[in-house]
């Protein structure tokens, strides 16, 4: 039985030594704003948003120094933050590419052709799922259901969903991202949101 792709290793096996981490002044403000959402004595509840903030600041992954920093920021035991960071899939505790490319391969997407999307991603980024691209800019992963099944198959790049993909459309999106552009997120088939693929079938008289 081989380890699943992207299976996490214990900390320290791969991660380079990052000595220090601290929020930038802007992120510190943001962190304080997030903290204010929770009642006093319940700061630990802010661990997820703060880890997201730290991960975004540190280029897509969380070194131990960042976990320790967040633990101290929230007055939690370090191990509690390690548990959270290692449990959730959206936190990377090993160095990965800054741009996170996730291909949904759960059943609805797979039925609608996620294999082709994955193939496009492999070709454009030049790496396998669970790896970073050779230039180190991108991190490709297979992901479980992203909850956009009506627009399957789906590709999730950083904070944006690209939907209704085919091999060609996925390739176009990814190539644009590689060039440093950010194409318009959402369905790439021209339809709006998740309205029926063949055009409106109800409420024909209502609206514009």
């Amino acid at each position: 039985m081989s380890a699943a792709p992207g299976a996490k290793k214990p900390y320290g096996a791969m991660a380079p030594d990052v000595d220090r981490f601290a929020f930038t002044p802007e992120n510190l403000e943001e962190a304080k704003r997030i903290l204010a959402r929770y009642p006093p004595g319940r700061q630990a509840s802010a661990v997820l948003p703060l880890l997201h903030l730290a991960q975004a600041q540190h280029g897509g992954w969380l070194p131990k120094a960042a976990l320790d920093y967040v633990a101290e920021f929230l007055g939690m035991a370090k191990i509690r933050v390690y548990e959270v960071a290692s449990f959730y899939d959206m936190f990377n505790i090993e160095p990965v590419g800054r741009v996170q490319v996730r291909v949904c391969t759960t059943t609805p997407c797979w039925l609608c052709g996620s294999d082709a999307v994955l193939k496009a991603a492999r070709e454009v980024l030049g790496c396998e799922p669970g790896e970073s691209s050779p230039d180190g800019r991108f991190y490709l992963r297979e992901f479980e259901c992203l909850g956009a099944c009506a627009n399957a198959p789906v590709l999730w790049i950083d904070d944006d969903f690209y939907e209704d993909l085919t091999y060609e459309r996925a390739k176009a999106v990814l190539e644009a991202v590689v060039r440093g552009e950010r194409p318009e997120p959402g369905p790439q088939s021209g339809r709006k949101g998740s309205m029926p693929a063949g055009g409106k079938t109800t409420l024909l008289e209502v609206g514009e």
Binding site: A7, Y11, Y82, E83
Partner: peptide, 16 residues
């Protein structure tokens, strides 16, 4: 001590 990772990958560890 804590339990890191999850599911089949869960491990009891002190992490460092």
């Amino acid at each position: 001590l804590g339990a890191v990772h999850r599911g089949e990958h869960m491990e009891i560890t002190s992490w460092v």
